[in-house]
């Protein structure tokens, strides 16, 4: 019976028919999705922090309104994803708990500091650009609620990248100090951005299964190469350079070759030793704890009102 269910499931996936919450699914599929979706949701929520850092110091009202809208989108994206994860049978509270205790991870990129205004541009262009590269194929993921959330997210994400590039473009046409600031931000965000695609394929044992289940459509290295190819061209429009002396067009491959990634740094940040890991988690926990009385008061008020309505009826 079990074997038939698995076969029926794989046939459904192979036929590009979506899996919905009440359909039978292998336990490992459910867990893989849960881990991936909740990690993505946590990344959106923690991802608000490095940018929130600059809202009060945006250089103009226009830039401030844009940054606010972007951060609000990220809160929204986190919520779409949390609710899609909840369809797999986990509670919101459980997910928050996993984030706050460090049991669940979020994207390591958010453990880097945002030290200049140009970082807002570099995050939009590179970090959101890498995220989009990752996310567009997820719109076709085999799990319905996840795919639908991703469609919504991808529609909104495009402005995030464009505003970032526009910000850098403005700096790149500015004075010497502004140009330096622009290049410096690119230098600091480039390598962490291409690490966002995850470990190389030969060290990513779960990728094959995820591709078979059509959760993922491309491997980490495929997406990374695509992102490098696109960025290497885009940077020219800024009159800036990517900080990789080995970055060179390879005619035979039809792709850009690029230098070796420092995976030690990647794993070090994943393990909690990045520049901002502690600060991010503490800020997040404090926000949650400080909001406790609001959540409790709202619930108490709702219950009291319900009682009153019952009595009145």
């Amino acid at each position: 019976m079990e074997i038939n269910l698995e076969k029926h499931f794989q046939d459904t996936v192979d036929a590009e028919i979506k899996i919905e919450p009440k359909d039978w699914m292998p336990e490992k599929y459910r867990q893989t999705l849960l881990r991936q979706i909740s990690q993505h949701a946590h990344s959106e929520i923690v991802g608000m922090l490095p940018e929130a850092n600059w809202i009060t110091r945006a250089p103009s009202l226009r830039r401030k309104a844009i940054l606010l809208a972007k951060v609000q989108d990220e809160a929204g994206h986190g919520l779409y994803l949390y609710s899609s994860a909840e369809t797999l049978g986990i509670s919101r509270e459980e997910m928050y708990d996993q984030l706050h205790t460090g049991k669940a991870k979020y994207s390591s990129i958010f453990n880097y500091p945002t030290i200049t205004w140009a970082d807002m541009g570099a995050i939009g262009w590179l970090v959101d650009g890498a995220a989009i590269m990752n996310q567009v194929p997820l719109c076709r993921a085999s799990y319905g609620p996840y795919a639908r959330a991703m469609v919504r997210i991808c529609k909104e994400e495009s402005f995030h990248q464009r505003q970032g590039f526009e910000l850098l473009l403005t700096l790149s046409k500015g004075n010497e100090a502004q140009k330096r600031m622009c290049q410096d931000a690119i230098n600091r965000w480039w390598w962490p951005s291409i690490m966002m695609f995850g470990p190389p394929d030969d060290e990513s044992p779960n990728t094959l299964q995820s591709v078979k289940w059509k959760i993922k459509r491309f491997t980490n290295d495929e997406l990374r190469q695509k992102f490098v190819d696109v960025s290497a061209e885009q940077v020219k429009l800024l009159g800036m350079v990517l900080p990789d002396k080995n970055l060179v067009w390879n005619e035979a491959r039809g792709h850009y070759d690029f230098g070796a990634i420092d995976w030690n740094e990647f794993w070090n940040v994943v393990k909690g030793n990045g520049p901002c890991n502690k600060q991010r988690l503490e800020t997040r926990k404090k926000a949650w704890e400080d909001g406790a009385w609001v959540r409790e008061a709202a619930m108490a008020y709702a219950e009291k009102k319900k009682e009153k309505n019952v009595k009145a009826a």
Binding site: A69, Q72, D73, G76, L79, Y80, S83, S84, E86, R92, R148, A149, R152, E156, R295, A298, M299, Y301, A302, K305, K306
Partner: peptide, 21 residues
Amino acid sequence: GSLHAADAAMAIENARDVYTR
């Protein structure tokens, strides 16, 4: 989609912020 809220009025306000930006 779905969301959490204490009551219906809050659910509608949250839905406005989450799903109709």
